[in-house]
Amino acid sequence: MVQTLKKSWTTFKTIFTGMGVTMRHLLQPSVTLRYPEERDELPSGARSKLFVHIDDCIGCKLCERACPVNCIAIETVQATKDVDLGKTSTGNPKRFWITTFNIDMSKCMYCDMCVPPCPTECISMVPEYEYSEYDRNNLLFQFSELSADKVTEVKEKAEKEQEEKQRKKKEAARKKKAQKADQTSKAKQKNSEG
């Protein structure tokens, strides 16, 4: 009997304790956010979408090499001598046309290893995480701003210059050879004379 009464008392006491706890939680403000309207601030250094300031890129391809999953694809064309591409905001001179700079975000694993090697700090992770797409191809982000015509033009120019260079080189080499041959023949002459 006493046992039963004690048990009943404990039951009531614990029920009221529990109800007190739930009442406190009922009155305290909720901890959740209504997501699309309200959202938490991302912490600094949060890893999410990659972004490239293409104006600052010098085409060094360090990020491409650092990427463990090969999600960055860069193609560059050397600028011809007659164009000055200017300087980056950090002061490095730009020497390459960036014809392609593609980042495939569906491959990216957010390791952040491409960011530190960049000498001009042009690649970075921006606090943006809502870029889901219906089509997987839409996740391939192209940062190069050159139009197709420009690219072909630049390529042709670069090729021409290259050819020119090669031609010059060849000429130079031939000249050198000729000179050398000349010298040797002269020396031979001297020898034979001497």
Binding site: H25, Q28, R34
Partner: peptide
């Protein structure tokens, strides 16, 4: 609403 607020949520909004 009661269940949501007891669990520190907001419920249907």
């Amino acid at each position: 609403k009661v269940s949501a607020h007891i669990q520190d949520r907001l419920g249907p909004m």
